[in-house]
Amino acid sequence: MTRFLPWAALVAGLGILGTGSPYLLTLAATSALAIMVAIALNVSMGLGGSVNLGVGVFYGCGAYGAALLNTKQGYSLGASLVVAVAIAVVVSLIVGPLLLRTRSLYFAISTLALNGIFVDIVASNDDLGGELGIPGITRPGPLPFFGEDGDPGSLRTMYLLICVALVAVLAVFAAIRGHRVGRTLEAIREDELLCQSLGYTTLGYRVFAFTVTAGLAAVAGVFYAFVIQYVNPGPFSFLTSSFQAFVIVAVGGAARTWGPILAGIVLVAGPSFLEFSATTNQYVYGGVLLAIVIFLPGGLAAGVDRLARGGAATTSSLRRTLARLKHTRESEGELS
């Protein structure tokens, strides 16, 4: 029963925010999008252990796909969501197996390169808007219960839809994490060779994680296009999106379901309430980031855990199991 409490708290929190001003709605919506991208990344980075620095590509696929479909073909939000996410998944299925031949640093840098190529393509191609971007994306009309003029500009409607998407994306993550697939991914992260020797096609699992990341990030991208109503290359560059998603996952606690939510509140939404100068805000951001990764190695989620348990350190049963397994396999001479 208690495991549903955080979910109830999340829904309640989003609900309270939903009664807020257009500013709060916009801030909460854009922060939720950043958090969704981070949750998406958490599948391949947290569970799978591949540091993907190019999640902005798929965020961008979703946003550009939706922007083009809506402005050129008149697709609705729902139709754009299906098609744009499908595009991102197809792209990830093509590049995933190629990039995933590489490991650790090599993989991180290849995904970073992929992000560079994506931004270059959309920025240089006039059919994709070029530097000018694509304006004029039309939001869906207000949800029925708002009535005729209860929600001017559909901002509250967009906010609610984004909340639904956020909860759904988080649920997908939690489901994968709790499923056998998620546990296998975590085992691969800890010791890929061992998993191979146990008969797992590890590449398949890693491609799966990569694709789920792509698909979920594209969901966030589609909502980005409809809430901002304008897309241009900048927000999908490494510096703006991939960097941020990576930092949110690291600060929140990799592989932790609630990590990105906590880190998103602290790093994305929080700074808007600081009335410092622009420069001081940057120092605070950098300082908070450094302090958390130095003093809370497991991220904010682990910190909250420790608080709740009165200071007891968390232990990983996964690591112990793997070590035991490895020992057995080595003594059997299967691993060399």
Partner: peptide, 14 residues
Amino acid sequence: VRSIAWVAGAALAV
């Protein structure tokens, strides 16, 4: 205890 801490934290933040 853990869950209550979660809820309390979230509610406070919101």
